[in-house]
Design a protein around this nucleic acid. Structure first.
Lengths: 354, 354
DNA sequence: GTTAGCACTCACTTTCAATGAGTGCTAACT
DNA sequence: AGTTAGCACTCATTGAAAGTGAGTGCTAAC
């Protein structure tokens, strides 16, 4: 790829900056007046013409100003922009709000998405961690009533899920305990996902045929509970922010954007396929049709070494990339920190030094 | 209130019917052509003029057709419309889809909202049951690790919530058991909400001062867990359906409708204030500013005698009331049935005959 | 290589007249 | 008295025409 001259880069950066602010195609005159480039509009026009030929700018129509292309944004994100350190005030806002009101894990994630959307004025989303790597730690079956037991599954990541089961017939508490121990023995250390996808019930049969009826009532619930534990949730927030953007002053566009919401699963799949760390995809770089003029910024947070969740924003390609990436990054740092504390406790619990 | 003549009612009904279909103001000529009323446009005009004077119709402008007012819809809902029995096909669609894929309770509710939205082509919502009447059945504290215990709270409605607690110091298992028993003794039969709002920690102090440190680590978590159990969730679905409605072919309106989403809590509050059974509020009957030209239909479902949740739809006042109410009703019947089965099991469990 | 000058383009806005669905009123009809 | 035909009137909507202005591309001079 041909190198761009210093001057071209300056002009391109000015155009991007202006367009990100105004959403209006930028003309040569505006540019020379607002930015101190030391060259006349005519010269700028020549340069812009070159930049257009190289694919960095486009022309909505002959007599309009220039608009940065996806390629220009990509260049900007990769080389031009410098990471912006958030001000202490901004940091405080994030940290303060993030740590308030965190009850359940999912709530914390949802809350993080909410904050992210409010700060960036964009649509945000957050995925709860995928527990594909999580392993079973113990399985308990606790007697409650004469025909009610509580199934409890604990995982090594510290997640505990319980479910009350109604056995249609009274059970023998001793057998119950034996079953729990046997299940723990069998599945301890195995991945939840593996246990779920293998046909367990078959496997199990041979071992403890004697307790067939008890097993029969419990195993389906065991599977369901595993399924619940593996479930990944996607939260979205601040969808209405797109109404503030001039590029969505069109009912059709606004609608198709909103439909992302109705297709959360599909969206979640796309997001989870993204690579780790901070990623930026711009416009046509997104495979999804609906997102051809959106940019998506995601970051990954970790709960312990293995459980990885994603959080990010989606907005128009005309976006304050440096600001938004900084915010996303700072937020995930905070999340990581918050969850790391938990992680350490877990590590202690396991007798493992980090 | 003055009685409307047979003919006026017929005309009004025709206007409502036509307007609900077309979203276009209805003129006298159209009316006489499409509906076999046996009178000329001029006569219809006279009648329409009367109806307008009585407040049942309005006029967007002098030379436009008539549009039904909220009052007209109210009359229609109260007296004119006849409940529509769903066809077997429709019933099957609902029942089949409702009973598939119900894992967790919340999921079932969310799923119901989804189905409702798909069938009605409107925006739907569903609230998980308020557990304000739910009472504590037992409290368990189960040893897991040397400094980890699991707190488990069971309620009489059958809900069980567990939370893993990390005590900073090792604990005495005997004391743990004693504490659980003591807590159960103290709170059994009491409402979750009452326990939460009373300052328990104070109360408790006197009784078991001896186990102060253990209690100190557990009680805050106990409170948090109660809070979680009491939490009511509101799910919304099918927001984008409003884009199909001509009355929302306006960015401003679409936007303010979408903002309902961002103010879920407020919306949930409004919904939970509604009376039981099937309710219909039309246009200005809604207190909320944003909903002045919406109609809201809600129904209540019961999980056991006490836990009541709400499900419903929100759409333009121009709505197929009889169809939608029938669907909502049928859906709640199904939900009730599904949860009643659970309820019966619970009743047995309690040794109570229904 | 840079810049001033100038013709040209084209979306956007405003204006204006035409269109047509619909009403209200009056007078005739049953 | 109730119903209907006829007609003038209203007014949102549509489309064409003209004007506006921000912006470009090109040429020639600096």
């Amino acid at each position: 790829m041909m190198e761009l001259s210093e001057r071209k880069l300056k002009i391109l950066q000015a155009i991007i900056g202006d367009y990100v602010m105004s959403a209006e195609p930028v003309g040569s005159r505006t540019l020379s007046k607002k930015y101190d480039l030391g060259i006349s509009p005519a010269t700028i026009r020549n340069e812009m013409s070159d930049l257009e030929e190289m694919g960095y700018l486009t022309h909505p129509h002959t007599s309009a100003g220039r608009v940065p292309s996806d390629k220009a944004y990509r260049l900007y994100v990769n080389s031009l922009m410098q990471k912006k350190e958030l001000s202490d005030a901004e940091k405080n806002v994030i940290a303060e709000r993030l740590y308030s009101n965190v009850n359940e894990f999912d709530e914390a994630i949802e809350h993080a998405a909410h904050i992210l959307s409010e700060i960036t004025n964009l649509t945000s989303f957050a995925m709860t961690p995928s527990k594909n790597e999580d392993t079973i730690k113990y399985i308990n079956l606790l007697p409650v009533d004469e025909d009610t037991v509580v199934l409890m599954i604990g995982s090594n990541s510290g997640k505990i899920k319980s479910k009350a089961l109604n056995l249609s017939v009274p059970y023998d508490p001793n057998r119950l305990e034996l079953l729990a121990k046997s299940m723990t023995y069998n599945y301890k250390g195995k991945k939840l996902s593996d246990v779920l996808t293998n046909n367990i019930i078959e496997d199990f049969h041979d071992d403890v045929e004697a307790m067939h009826s008890l097993e029969g009532s419990i195993m389906p619930n065991f599977m369901k509970t595993l399924e619940d534990m593996l479930n990944v949730n996607l939260y979205m927030d601040g969808l209405t922010h797109i109404f503030d953007l001039p590029e969505y002053n069109d009912l059709q566009k606004a609608r198709s954007f909103m439909e992302l919401f109705d297709q959360k699963e599909e969206f979640a799949r796309r997001i989870s396929e993204r690579s780790d760390g901070i990623t930026v995809t711009i416009g046509t770089e997104n495979s999804d049709d609906v997102m051809q003029d959106c940019s998506v910024i995601t970051a990954t947070y970790q709960v312990d070494g293995k459980m990885i969740g994603k959080i990010g924003v989606i907005g128009p390609t005309r976006m304050k990339y440096e600001e938004v990436t900084s915010i996303v990054e700072y937020l995930t740092d905070n999340l990581n920190h918050a969850f790391q504390i938990e992680g350490k406790i877990k590590a202690l619990e396991e007798g493992v030094d980090e």
